[in-house]
Nucleic acid binder design. Structure first.
Length: 338
RNA sequence: GGGUAGGUUGAGCAGGUGGUGAGCUCAGCUGGCUGUAGACCAGCCGCCUUCGGCUAUGGGGGUUCGAUUCCCUCCCUGCCCA
């Protein structure tokens, strides 16, 4: 729903493109003919493409996994497709992102140990094949750690992936059905093993402010998540110390901005009453404005974290850290702060 | 004034031509959403002490063992004709 201009407005410096959709439509060959993703979408800043592993697995009954790859049926037109590590890398090279990601097999974090073991070993073999298939020297390639929430499997996977010549290390297989405590414990196993490693540590999938803060505190450098955008489309706006559910009737009479000091278009120009109206009217503008706001909020939040780290005061000046045990950032009533 | 169609839980409806009206869509409320199968999903949504009970089909009367249904009358709304 967002254009590159929207993303520049909210201050995005790197974006992730949905490889799965780009592969199915309009097709990676076409994008390559048109000059690659940067020219195609008029975005001159960094782009990271996911391998498609997560998307393919999320298809559920529409896919079959074997040791060589994944066969899946397009949810768009029912056509059959075959993804292997080699195909996934080829597609990403054609798209021309700055960072490509190895093809992996994520499973639910709390899956039975045998399932996690299987998927993790397969992911390791696919990681080696992804590296072997990668030929572009102007494109970084990140490897993905699996291992679920099993301490020994996670540790072994971290060491295996870190032992390969990737440009960055993704921590995958989280942001699923694990509890926050299980997630924290898993990070505390994996990240220390990478402590002396200069390569970026990228936690795949997490996006709530509390999750970001918690993971940064544990040593993660990079994130991506649909949460700020999806939650925004569903009517929830993040503001400091709280959140607003725009579907609540009371906002129809609220002439104030969503967030007083927010630089996003929604907050600069429109009222809570107007955005609440747009949601009720199911106007597409509602989803776009709301998404811009939550992305602005998230990026500002990360800015604060970076400044805090640079000034050496992190995490002491991030009182939200204590919220983990209780309620998440954004779960407090908004009226109190309004 | 005459005719006609109606009056069902906040709104709009479905149903019901004598034997259990709490069914739908909005609206409303709550929760969920995390490497994107987009604007979604789930629950609640008359009252109560909730494995259950009670009350509800515009008001009143009548017929009947029994009326939301049939009859009478009144009120209200839309439309048509004067």
């Amino acid at each position: 729903a967002l254009t590159p201009d929207d993303l520049r407005d909210v201050g995005a410096s790197i974006i992730l493109s949905n490889t799965y959709h780009l592969y199915l439509r309009p097709g990676h060959e076409r994008i390559e003919r048109l000059g690659g993703l940067h020219r195609f979408m008029a975005w001159d800043r960094p782009i990271l493409t996911d391998s498609g592993g997560f998307q393919v697995v999320s298809l559920g009954d529409l896919r079959v996994v074997d040791d060589d790859g994944v066969t899946f049926r397009s949810h768009l037109d029912g056509t059959l497709h075959r993804f292997t590590p080699e195909v996934a890398i080829g597609v990403q090279e054609a798209l021309g992102a700055d960072i490509a990601v190895a093809f992996d097999q994520p499973v639910a974090p709390t899956s039975p140990r045998a399932v996690v073991t299987d998927a993790t070993e397969r992911t390791h073999r696919w990681a080696e094949r992804s590296l072997a298939a990668h030929t572009r020297t102007d494109q970084a390639l990140f490897g993905i750690v699996q291992g679920g929430i099993e301490p020994d499997l996670r540790a072994a996977s971290t060491e295996f992936i870190a032992g390969l010549p990737f440009d960055g290390i993704c921590l995958g297989g989280l942001a699923g059905d694990e509890t926050p405590a299980q997630r924290d414990a898993t990070l505390d196993i994996a990240v220390p093993l990478l402590a002396a490693d200069p390569r970026p540590r990228y936690l795949m999938g997490l996006g709530s402010p509390a999750d970001l803060l918690e993971a940064v505190h544990r040593g993660v450098d990079l994130f991506d998540s649909v949460l700020p955008a999806r939650v925004a489309r569903n009517g929830q706006l993040w503001i400091p110390g709280g959140r607003l559910n725009l579907r609540n009737q009371r906002f129809l009479d609220d002439p104030g901005p969503v967030q007083e000091d927010c630089p996003c278009l929604l907050c600069r120009r429109f009222s809570r009453a107007y955005i609440a109206h747009l949601f009720r009217a199911k106007e597409l503008l509602a989803y776009r404005l709301a998404t811009c706001h939550n992305l602005t909020f998230t990026l500002d939040f990360m800015d604060r974290i970076r400044m805090s780290i640079r000034s050496g005061t992190f995490p002491a000046d991030m009182p939200e850290l204590r919220l983990r045990a209780g309620r998440e950032i954004g779960s407090e009533g908004a009226e109190k702060s309004a």
